[in-house]
Protein backbone atom coordinates (compact mmCIF):
# COMPACT_ATOMS: atom_id res chain seq x y z
CA UNK A 1 0.00 0.00 0.00
CA UNK A 2 1.38 3.36 -0.93
CA UNK A 3 0.94 6.34 1.34
CA UNK A 4 -0.06 8.62 -1.52
CA UNK A 5 -1.50 11.79 -0.02
CA UNK A 6 -3.56 12.82 -3.03
CA UNK A 7 -6.45 10.37 -2.99
CA UNK A 8 -9.11 10.93 -5.61
CA UNK A 9 -11.25 8.11 -4.30
CA UNK A 10 -11.19 7.40 -0.60
CA UNK A 11 -14.24 5.51 0.62
CA UNK A 12 -14.84 3.05 3.43
CA UNK A 13 -17.66 0.81 4.58
CA UNK A 14 -19.96 1.37 1.59
CA UNK A 15 -23.13 -0.74 1.66
CA UNK A 16 -25.93 -1.04 -0.84
CA UNK A 17 -28.86 -3.40 -0.88
CA UNK A 18 -31.63 -3.92 -3.40
CA UNK A 19 -34.44 -5.58 -1.50
CA UNK A 20 -33.02 -8.79 -0.07
CA UNK A 21 -29.87 -8.62 -2.19
CA UNK A 22 -26.90 -7.14 -0.37
CA UNK A 23 -25.01 -6.10 -3.50
CA UNK A 24 -22.10 -4.27 -1.90
CA UNK A 25 -20.85 -5.09 1.58
CA UNK A 26 -18.51 -2.86 3.59
CA UNK A 27 -16.61 -1.87 0.50
CA UNK A 28 -13.63 0.43 0.67
CA UNK A 29 -11.09 1.61 -1.88
CA UNK A 30 -8.42 4.27 -2.20
CA UNK A 31 -7.17 5.45 -5.58
CA UNK A 32 -4.46 8.09 -5.98
CA UNK A 33 -4.55 10.86 -8.60
CA UNK A 34 -3.51 9.94 -12.10
CA UNK A 35 -3.70 6.18 -11.58
CA UNK A 36 -5.56 3.71 -13.75
CA UNK A 37 -7.18 1.24 -11.41
CA UNK A 38 -8.63 -1.97 -12.83
CA UNK A 39 -11.76 -3.20 -11.16
CA UNK A 40 -12.09 -6.95 -11.49
CA UNK A 41 -14.37 -9.62 -10.17
CA UNK A 42 -16.91 -12.17 -11.31
CA UNK A 43 -20.33 -11.15 -12.60
CA UNK A 44 -22.57 -10.03 -9.77
CA UNK A 45 -19.58 -9.02 -7.64
CA UNK A 46 -21.08 -5.55 -7.21
CA UNK A 47 -18.78 -3.73 -9.63
CA UNK A 48 -21.50 -1.78 -11.45
CA UNK A 49 -23.26 -0.90 -8.19
CA UNK A 50 -19.98 0.35 -6.74
CA UNK A 51 -19.19 2.47 -9.79
CA UNK A 52 -22.70 3.94 -9.68
CA UNK A 53 -22.25 4.85 -6.02
CA UNK A 54 -18.93 6.50 -6.76
CA UNK A 55 -20.38 8.71 -9.50
CA UNK A 56 -23.48 9.77 -7.58
CA UNK A 57 -25.98 7.65 -9.51
CA UNK A 58 -26.81 5.58 -6.45
CA UNK A 59 -26.87 6.70 -2.84
CA UNK A 60 -25.06 4.25 -0.56
CA UNK A 61 -27.19 2.85 2.28
CA UNK A 62 -24.28 3.50 4.62
CA UNK A 63 -20.61 4.28 4.46
CA UNK A 64 -18.31 7.25 4.45
CA UNK A 65 -15.57 8.85 2.45
CA UNK A 66 -14.97 11.17 -0.41
CA UNK A 67 -14.73 11.23 -4.17
CA UNK A 68 -12.67 14.16 -5.50
CA UNK A 69 -12.88 15.65 -2.02
CA UNK A 70 -16.70 15.61 -1.98
CA UNK A 71 -18.75 13.63 0.50
CA UNK A 72 -19.86 10.44 -1.23
CA UNK A 73 -23.04 10.32 0.86
CA UNK A 74 -24.20 13.90 0.44
CA UNK A 75 -22.58 15.67 -2.47
CA UNK A 76 -23.75 13.63 -5.44
CA UNK A 77 -24.33 16.75 -7.52
CA UNK A 78 -20.84 18.16 -6.99
CA UNK A 79 -19.37 14.74 -7.76
CA UNK A 80 -21.40 14.46 -10.98
CA UNK A 81 -19.89 17.72 -12.22
CA UNK A 82 -16.32 16.45 -11.97
CA UNK A 83 -16.78 12.78 -12.88
CA UNK A 84 -17.10 11.16 -16.27
CA UNK A 85 -19.08 7.95 -16.33
CA UNK A 86 -19.39 5.51 -19.18
CA UNK A 87 -22.17 2.99 -18.77
CA UNK A 88 -21.92 -0.69 -19.53
CA UNK A 89 -24.70 -0.55 -22.10
CA UNK A 90 -24.38 2.04 -24.87
CA UNK A 91 -26.40 4.94 -23.54
CA UNK A 92 -26.04 7.79 -25.97
CA UNK A 93 -28.93 8.99 -28.11
CA UNK A 94 -28.98 6.68 -31.10
CA UNK A 95 -31.31 8.99 -32.97
CA UNK A 96 -28.94 11.94 -32.65
CA UNK A 97 -25.86 12.31 -34.80
CA UNK A 98 -22.33 11.93 -33.48
CA UNK A 99 -21.91 15.67 -33.35
CA UNK A 100 -25.31 16.24 -31.72
CA UNK A 101 -24.47 13.79 -28.95
CA UNK A 102 -21.23 15.65 -28.26
CA UNK A 103 -22.98 19.01 -28.33
CA UNK A 104 -25.62 17.71 -25.92
CA UNK A 105 -22.89 16.63 -23.48
CA UNK A 106 -21.18 20.00 -23.81
CA UNK A 107 -24.40 21.88 -23.05
CA UNK A 108 -25.49 19.64 -20.19
CA UNK A 109 -22.15 20.30 -18.52
CA UNK A 110 -22.45 24.00 -19.20
CA UNK A 111 -19.08 24.10 -20.99
CA UNK A 112 -17.59 27.20 -22.53
CA UNK A 113 -16.12 27.17 -26.06
CA UNK A 114 -18.58 24.43 -27.01
CA UNK A 115 -17.96 24.44 -30.76
CA UNK A 116 -14.20 24.22 -30.28
CA UNK A 117 -14.45 21.37 -27.80
CA UNK A 118 -16.84 19.38 -29.97
CA UNK A 119 -14.61 19.95 -32.99
CA UNK A 120 -11.54 18.88 -31.03
CA UNK A 121 -13.31 15.74 -29.83
CA UNK A 122 -14.36 14.90 -33.39
CA UNK A 123 -10.79 15.34 -34.58
CA UNK A 124 -9.37 13.22 -31.78
CA UNK A 125 -11.88 10.50 -32.63
CA UNK A 126 -11.20 10.82 -36.34
CA UNK A 127 -14.91 11.26 -36.93
CA UNK A 128 -14.90 14.72 -38.48
CA UNK A 129 -16.10 13.33 -41.80
CA UNK A 130 -18.83 11.26 -40.20
CA UNK A 131 -20.06 13.88 -37.75
CA UNK A 132 -23.55 13.89 -39.28
CA UNK A 133 -23.98 10.13 -39.01
CA UNK A 134 -26.49 8.79 -36.49
CA UNK A 135 -24.82 7.40 -33.38
CA UNK A 136 -27.03 4.32 -33.61
CA UNK A 137 -25.44 3.36 -36.93
CA UNK A 138 -21.89 3.16 -35.57
CA UNK A 139 -20.19 -0.21 -35.09
CA UNK A 140 -19.53 -1.49 -31.59
CA UNK A 141 -15.96 -0.24 -31.37
CA UNK A 142 -16.83 3.23 -32.65
CA UNK A 143 -19.79 3.47 -30.32
CA UNK A 144 -17.50 2.85 -27.37
CA UNK A 145 -14.99 5.44 -28.53
CA UNK A 146 -17.78 7.98 -29.02
CA UNK A 147 -19.16 7.15 -25.57
CA UNK A 148 -15.68 7.72 -24.14
CA UNK A 149 -15.42 11.06 -25.93
CA UNK A 150 -18.83 12.10 -24.58
CA UNK A 151 -17.95 10.98 -21.04
CA UNK A 152 -14.68 12.95 -21.09
CA UNK A 153 -15.77 16.05 -22.99
CA UNK A 154 -16.00 18.09 -19.78
CA UNK A 155 -12.45 17.03 -18.85
CA UNK A 156 -13.43 15.24 -15.66
CA UNK A 157 -10.87 14.61 -12.92
CA UNK A 158 -12.14 11.10 -12.47
CA UNK A 159 -13.31 8.71 -15.15
CA UNK A 160 -15.41 5.67 -14.28
CA UNK A 161 -15.72 3.04 -16.97
CA UNK A 162 -18.05 0.08 -16.64
CA UNK A 163 -16.79 -2.76 -18.84
CA UNK A 164 -16.08 -0.32 -21.65
CA UNK A 165 -14.73 -2.83 -24.13
CA UNK A 166 -17.14 -5.73 -23.73
CA UNK A 167 -17.83 -7.16 -27.16
CA UNK A 168 -15.30 -4.93 -28.93
CA UNK A 169 -12.68 -6.32 -31.32
CA UNK A 170 -9.01 -6.43 -30.22
CA UNK A 171 -7.84 -3.58 -32.40
CA UNK A 172 -10.59 -1.25 -31.24
CA UNK A 173 -9.80 -2.26 -27.68
CA UNK A 174 -6.17 -1.33 -28.16
CA UNK A 175 -7.08 2.10 -29.54
CA UNK A 176 -9.47 2.56 -26.65
CA UNK A 177 -6.78 1.76 -24.10
CA UNK A 178 -4.26 4.02 -25.79
CA UNK A 179 -6.75 6.87 -25.32
CA UNK A 180 -7.24 5.99 -21.66
CA UNK A 181 -3.48 5.99 -21.08
CA UNK A 182 -3.13 9.32 -22.83
CA UNK A 183 -5.77 10.86 -20.58
CA UNK A 184 -4.22 9.33 -17.48
CA UNK A 185 -0.89 10.86 -18.47
CA UNK A 186 -2.62 14.24 -18.38
CA UNK A 187 -3.63 13.63 -14.76
CA UNK A 188 -7.03 11.99 -15.08
CA UNK A 189 -7.75 9.22 -12.59
CA UNK A 190 -9.46 6.17 -14.06
CA UNK A 191 -11.40 3.36 -12.45
CA UNK A 192 -12.29 0.74 -15.01
CA UNK A 193 -14.14 -2.52 -14.55
CA UNK A 194 -13.24 -5.34 -16.90
CA UNK A 195 -13.22 -9.07 -17.37
CA UNK A 196 -10.22 -9.11 -19.69
CA UNK A 197 -6.92 -10.13 -18.08
CA UNK A 198 -4.84 -8.34 -20.70
CA UNK A 199 -6.71 -5.15 -19.81
CA UNK A 200 -6.11 -5.76 -16.13
CA UNK A 201 -2.43 -5.88 -16.91
CA UNK A 202 -2.66 -2.54 -18.70
CA UNK A 203 -3.82 -0.93 -15.45
CA UNK A 204 -1.43 0.66 -12.99
CA UNK A 205 -3.09 -1.25 -10.21
CA UNK A 206 -6.00 -3.59 -9.75
CA UNK A 207 -8.63 -4.42 -7.20
CA UNK A 208 -10.26 -7.81 -7.29
CA UNK A 209 -13.64 -7.91 -5.61
CA UNK A 210 -16.09 -10.71 -4.95
CA UNK A 211 -19.44 -10.16 -3.24
CA UNK A 212 -18.48 -6.56 -2.56
CA UNK A 213 -15.30 -7.62 -0.73
CA UNK A 214 -11.81 -6.75 -1.95
CA UNK A 215 -9.78 -9.93 -2.15
CA UNK A 216 -6.65 -8.57 -3.81
CA UNK A 217 -5.23 -5.12 -4.29
CA UNK A 218 -2.04 -3.66 -5.80
CA UNK A 219 -0.18 -3.72 -9.09
CA UNK A 220 -0.55 -6.83 -11.20
CA UNK A 221 2.90 -7.99 -10.05
CA UNK A 222 2.10 -7.32 -6.42
CA UNK A 223 -1.13 -9.28 -6.67
CA UNK A 224 0.66 -12.23 -8.26
CA UNK A 225 3.46 -12.10 -5.68
CA UNK A 226 1.05 -11.78 -2.78
CA UNK A 227 -0.83 -14.86 -3.90
CA UNK A 228 2.15 -17.10 -3.01
CA UNK A 229 1.10 -19.26 -5.92
CA UNK A 230 3.51 -21.58 -7.73
CA UNK A 231 2.55 -22.55 -11.26
CA UNK A 232 3.81 -25.18 -13.62
CA UNK A 233 2.69 -25.63 -17.10
CA UNK A 234 2.74 -28.77 -19.12
CA UNK A 235 2.80 -28.96 -22.87
CA UNK A 236 2.50 -31.98 -25.04
CA UNK A 237 -0.03 -34.41 -26.45
CA UNK A 238 -2.97 -34.89 -24.09
CA UNK A 239 -1.70 -32.37 -21.53
CA UNK A 240 -4.97 -30.48 -21.45
CA UNK A 241 -6.89 -33.65 -20.64
CA UNK A 242 -5.06 -34.20 -17.36
CA UNK A 243 -6.80 -31.29 -15.63
CA UNK A 244 -9.60 -33.27 -14.00
CA UNK A 245 -7.23 -35.98 -12.82
CA UNK A 246 -4.64 -33.60 -11.37
CA UNK A 247 -7.22 -31.52 -9.56
CA UNK A 248 -7.90 -34.37 -7.16
CA UNK A 249 -4.24 -34.69 -6.08
CA UNK A 250 -3.18 -33.19 -2.74
CA UNK A 251 -1.12 -30.05 -3.24
CA UNK A 252 -2.84 -29.15 -6.52
CA UNK A 253 -5.15 -26.26 -5.82
CA UNK A 254 -5.95 -25.50 -9.39
CA UNK A 255 -5.49 -27.20 -12.74
CA UNK A 256 -6.84 -25.59 -15.85
CA UNK A 257 -6.24 -26.16 -19.54
CA UNK A 258 -5.38 -23.18 -21.75
CA UNK A 259 -5.68 -24.57 -25.22
CA UNK A 260 -3.26 -27.44 -25.34
CA UNK A 261 -1.28 -26.17 -22.36
CA UNK A 262 -2.13 -27.18 -18.82
CA UNK A 263 -1.66 -24.81 -15.87
CA UNK A 264 -1.23 -26.47 -12.49
CA UNK A 265 -0.96 -24.30 -9.41
CA UNK A 266 -0.61 -24.67 -5.67
CA UNK A 267 0.91 -22.86 -2.74
CA UNK A 268 2.88 -25.74 -1.20
CA UNK A 269 5.86 -26.28 -3.51
CA UNK A 270 6.83 -29.73 -2.14
CA UNK A 271 3.27 -31.06 -2.31
CA UNK A 272 2.75 -29.61 -5.78
CA UNK A 273 5.96 -31.09 -7.13
CA UNK A 274 5.09 -34.45 -5.58
CA UNK A 275 1.68 -34.36 -7.20
CA UNK A 276 2.97 -33.71 -10.69
CA UNK A 277 6.04 -35.96 -10.39
CA UNK A 278 4.30 -39.03 -11.91
CA UNK A 279 3.44 -36.98 -15.01
CA UNK A 280 6.83 -35.33 -15.49
CA UNK A 281 7.97 -37.55 -18.28
CA UNK A 282 7.95 -37.42 -22.07
CA UNK A 283 6.08 -36.64 -24.16
CA UNK A 284 4.97 -33.92 -21.72
CA UNK A 285 7.28 -30.99 -21.21
CA UNK A 286 6.98 -29.28 -17.83
CA UNK A 287 8.20 -25.89 -16.92
CA UNK A 288 7.72 -23.63 -13.91
CA UNK A 289 6.24 -20.27 -14.88
CA UNK A 290 5.08 -17.14 -13.24
CA UNK A 291 1.37 -17.44 -12.39
CA UNK A 292 -0.91 -15.29 -14.50
CA UNK A 293 -3.50 -12.95 -13.01
CA UNK A 294 -6.14 -15.37 -14.13
CA UNK A 295 -4.50 -18.18 -12.15
CA UNK A 296 -4.49 -15.95 -9.11
CA UNK A 297 -8.13 -14.89 -9.49
CA UNK A 298 -9.39 -18.41 -9.95
CA UNK A 299 -7.38 -19.34 -6.88
CA UNK A 300 -8.96 -16.52 -4.90
CA UNK A 301 -12.46 -17.67 -5.77
CA UNK A 302 -11.61 -21.25 -4.80
CA UNK A 303 -10.29 -20.02 -1.47
CA UNK A 304 -13.46 -18.04 -0.87
CA UNK A 305 -15.65 -21.02 -1.70
CA UNK A 306 -13.60 -23.27 0.59
CA UNK A 307 -13.95 -20.70 3.35
CA UNK A 308 -17.71 -20.59 2.84
CA UNK A 309 -17.91 -24.39 3.02
CA UNK A 310 -15.97 -24.39 6.28
CA UNK A 311 -18.23 -21.71 7.71
CA UNK A 312 -21.39 -23.58 6.70
Amino acid sequence: MSDAPDLVIDVRGLNKSFGALHAVKDFGIQVARGRICGFLGPNGAGKTTTLRMLCGLLTPDSGEGSVLGFDVMKQAREIKQRVGYMTQKFSLYEDLTIEQNLTFAARVHDLDRRKERVQAALERLGLVERRAQLAGNLSGGWKQRLALAVATLHEPDLLLLDEPTAGVDPEARRTFWDEIHAMSAEGMTVLVSTHYMDEAERCHEIAYIVGGRTLARGTADEVVDASGLITFHAEGPGADRLAAELRTKPGVEMAAPFGTVLHVSGRDRTALEAAIAPYRKPPLEWEETRPTLEDVFIQLIHDLEAEKRRAA
Partner: peptide
Protein backbone atom coordinates in the same frame (compact mmCIF):
# COMPACT_ATOMS: atom_id res chain seq x y z
CA UNK B 1 -36.09 1.82 -21.92
CA UNK B 2 -33.26 2.86 -24.22
CA UNK B 3 -30.75 3.12 -21.37
CA UNK B 4 -30.01 6.78 -21.98
CA UNK B 5 -31.47 7.59 -18.55
CA UNK B 6 -28.30 6.36 -16.86
CA UNK B 7 -26.11 8.73 -18.85
CA UNK B 8 -28.51 11.60 -18.36
CA UNK B 9 -28.61 11.10 -14.59
CA UNK B 10 -24.83 10.87 -14.43
CA UNK B 11 -24.66 14.47 -15.63
CA UNK B 12 -25.27 17.38 -13.24
CA UNK B 13 -28.56 18.29 -14.96
Amino acid sequence: ERGTMESLLATPV
